[in-house]
């Protein structure tokens, strides 16, 4: 089997490919930024009506540190009441796991096929390399 001769890409094609990957990067980078449902959080439904350190369950030492950081009870309440929701959706978890496993399966399988072409060309093709060259 003769060595594979790759196509030579024209300047216009190079520009197109650069722009394509750039657009793909931007789209992928910005999509999660606008998925507001993702980031956090569950605001506590029982909002504290009158903000006091006692109502927020803050101890005297914690209160002192909050104040040193420039916060009053109202601004601290926004931070304290902002919490993560770790409820697991089994369907979403299964889909996510399948996507990750499927991705690696695909990449490894295709890579293995391509790698055999690389090794065949390297060791059987025109630029064959002697086997013993790098032995210790």
């Amino acid at each position: 089997m003769s060595n594979y001769i790759p196509k030579i890409q024209a300047k216009r094609g190079q520009l197109f490919d650069s722009l394509f990957i750039l657009v793909l990067v931007y789209v992928s980078l910005y999509i999660p930024l606008f998925l507001e449902s993702d980031v956090k959080s569950v605001e506590e439904t029982a909002q504290v009506q009158s903000y006091t350190w006692e109502a927020l369950g803050v101890s005297a030492v914690e209160q002192e540190q909050w104040q040193k950081l420039g916060h009053d009870p109202a601004s601290a309440a926004d931070i304290i009441n902002n919490k993560f929701d770790y409820t697991i959706d089994p369907l979403m978890l299964a889909i996510t796991a399948l996507v990750i496993i499927g991705y690696f399966f695909f990449v490894l399988r295709v890579s293995n096929k391509q790698y055999r072409e690389v090794i065949h060309e390297k060791f059987n093709g025109a630029n064959k390399q002697p086997d013993a060259e790098a032995r210790q």
Binding site: F20, I21, L24, V25, V27, S28, I31, P32, L35, S37, D38, V39, K40, F84, D85, Y86, I88, M92, L93, I95, T96, A97, V99, I100, Y103, F106, V107, V110
Partner: peptide, 25 residues
């Protein structure tokens, strides 16, 4: 991966989609 799913599941899928599309490309 599971830790990222907890709280950032949509980001995880979106980023995986990027690598899948790039691989096919």
């Amino acid at each position: 991966y599971f830790a990222t799913f907890l709280g950032y599941g949509a980001s995880l899928l979106s980023i995986m989609a990027f690598y899948i599309v790039a691989s096919v490309w």
